[in-house]
């Protein structure tokens, strides 16, 4: 087992940790969504990279090729990307609504304004 044989995993983990860090550490909601996106793409890598065969080609059947990369992860990730953008849109819509209700998209400010006025978030819409 050499370093290079696990290089794709290393990239995946780096991206995943970076995304995780953005989501946890940053209070800005849009930044958090971008971090979530980074995390998500790392999962794409996690799925796609093991499916690759060196010397293989894209999984489109042709008489000239014998070795194909694995098509199954591609299918799964294809749907994941589109679901990802749909959830991103939903998250952004929520952010916009929050911004209209609280006039801020910083998590700390939102929490502060909630504490200053207990039970106030229900009626403020």
């Amino acid at each position: 087992m050499s370093f290079w044989s696990h290089f794709s995993y290393a990239i995946t983990i780096f991206l995943m940790v970076a995304g995780l860090y953005i989501v946890i550490a940053r209070g800005n909601l849009i930044k958090k969504l971008v971090g979530l996106g980074v995390f998500q793409t790392s999962v794409y890598m996690l799925y796609i990279a093991p499916g690759k065969l060196i010397g293989g080609t894209a999984p489109i059947i042709d008489a000239n090729f014998k070795v194909y990369s694995n098509p199954l992860p591609h299918v799964l990730i294809l749907t994941a990307i589109v679901v990802g953008v749909a959830t991103l849109a939903l998250g952004l819509a929520l952010v916009v609504r929050i911004r209209e209700a609280y006039d801020t998209i910083e998590e700390d400010d939102i929490l502060a304004s909630d504490e200053g006025e207990p039970g106030g978030d229900g009626q403020r819409r």
């Binding site: 996106g37 793409t41 794409y44 796609i48 990279a49 499916g51 690759k52 065969l53 293989g56 080609t57 894209a58 999984p59 990369s69 992860p73 591609h74 990730i77 294809l78 990307i81 589109v82 990802g84 953008v85």
Partner: peptide, 15 residues
């Protein structure tokens, strides 16, 4: 580069 052309196309247009 990882042979996932369909996925790459989606990622480029969506992402």
């Amino acid at each position: 580069a990882l042979d996932a052309v369909d996925v790459a196309m989606t990622e480029a247009s969506v992402g």
